[in-house]
Each structure stands twice: as C-alpha cells, then as structure tokens.
Amino acid sequence: MRTYLLNRAWQSLLTLILATVVVFLGVRALPGDPALALAGEDRSPETLAAIRLQYGLDQSIPVQFGHFVNNILHGDLGTSIRTGTPVSSMMRTALPVTLQLAVFAIVLATIVGVGAGVVAAAKRGRPAEWVANGLALIGLSVPHFWLGLVAILYLAVATGLFPASGFVPFTENPVENLHHILLPVVILGTGLSAVIMRQTRSATLDALSADYVRTAKAKGLRPSAVIGRHALRNSLIVVVTIAGLQLGELISGAVVTEQIFGLPGFGKMTLDAVFQRDYPVIQAVVLVTATAYIAINFLVDLLYSLIDPRIRVGGEAA
C-alpha cells in the first residue's frame, strides 16, 4: 500500500507542477503586452513599470516562473486589478459559500444516487427499476441551471417559499443560511445524483453477476444481505473511484448555480473576473481549481486504498 500511495502522491505532484506551468503560460499567451492586460484601466507608465517589477516581466521566462511559484508558495495569489484587493482574501470570503454548497450537494446526491442505483439494480426488470432509470436519465438530460430558473420562478417568486437569491452566512443565522442554500443545493445535487445513480447501478449489476454473489445466495442469505453485504461493498469501491472524476462537473455546476441564485461564492467571483478582464483573479481561480481537483483526487485514491483490502493488505500468497 505504501508504494501505491507514494506513487500516486508523486503523480499528483507532477500533475500539479504541470498545471502550474500551464496557468503561468496561459497569461503569457494573452495577445499583446501582459503588463497592459494586468494593469486594467490604469495604463500610466508608472503603473506599468510597477507591474513589470511585481511580476518580473522584464526578466527571462524561467525567472518569471520562479517568481510566480515563489509568490504562490507564500500565499500571494496576486491582487485584483479592479478592486485592488488581494486575491487570497477574496478567496477567503468566497470559498466557504461554495464549499458549503458543494458539500451539501455531494451528500444529498450520494444518498439519493446510491439509494436509487441500488434499487434499480436489485429490482431489475420491475417497475421500480424503470422509474429509477427514467428519473436518472431525465436528471442527466435536464440543464440544471434551467431547473434552477424554473424553481426560482415557481417556488421562490410565485409562492415566496424560498428566497430567490442571496446568501446568509451560517455563523450569522443558521436557519436563514439553510433557507437560502436549500434550493441551490437541490438543484446542484440533481445532476450529480443522476450520475452517481447510474454508476452505482452499473457497478452493482456487475457485482450482482459476480461469482461471490452466487456463493452468497448459495449460503442461504437474504437478498438484502446479498446486496448490502456482498454486492454493494464491492460496487461502492468502484463508485468512489469514479466519483472523484465528477468533481470537475461539480465545480462547473457550482459556478452556474451561484450565478442563478446570486450566491457570493467562488463562481460569482470567477465570472465577475472574466467580464472585467481581471487577469490576476482569473489566473488564481484556474490555479486554485486545478489544485483542488488534484488534491481531492489524491484523497479519493487514499480513501480507495483504505476501503479496498486488496490494496490495504497487500501480499498475494503463493
């Protein structure tokens, strides 16, 4: 197991380094003088000179890269050229909103998705399977930002049951916080639960046709034990490994959901930055996303190696 994890850690680190290079080169791929782009409105020679100095733009590309990495390692993600705020402090206010949204959505999607997936696999060929499959297909095919619009139209604006937009931090007012976040969580969770459902169903069907399930049945176990103790345990290992790959979808989904519900999170910050051509912020956003993705997938691998005994307890006997 140690070699497996060391190997994965090394691969993740390598990917992270490559991602950093890509982000660094991305800004250099801007047409024209990067200093102009980084300066925004204020294009006075003094400002441009200051920016060149700050980013080391006069120096060779490798030196600039060293500069770039050094800044990041010191927690300096640059400064917004629109507001003059350090990007790291913008992140500190925006990320908790997105994290809450994402974590709640994952929890909801996992409960719904795994439950429905197991039902669909276990009730194969019966009405329950068709219902679960049909809902998953629709969940996969409906644009969830549109679902959000419709929900706002009919659940928030028309009835006033939920606030149509805005956010209240949990620390300020937990009840209002949940009230504001519930609809976005459900909307973001639907698409994700459809994906998890289909993966769970397919992995559980595979597991159910495995020889060890036949053995379990031949022992006289109840269907619930056959599925819960034998099939699901194996299929969830598969689901966990694939779920990490859904993170990209989740990040993209969170951006849109925040936009629709006016949540002041990472997504809103990103979009504002794009429309204001706030390059330092965009650069930081891309880098933080890539880092988060790589880190979480490493954690998924770690988790996977903990739950799968074939990796945890190595050593094939002769």
Partner: peptide, 21 residues
C-alpha cells in the same frame, strides 16, 4: 500525465481561461 493534467481543468474553468485569452 497529460490526461491527468487535462482532467484538472473543468470545462467551465477552461472556458473561463479561453474566454479571457
């Protein structure tokens, strides 16, 4: 490694980067 690298950039973030550039 190239595959892993691509995966680290969700499509929306890629679109953000491309739109910016």
């Amino acid at each position: 490694r190239f595959t892993d690298l691509l995966l680290a950039f969700p499509f929306l973030i890629l679109a953000v980067g491309l739109a910016a550039i």
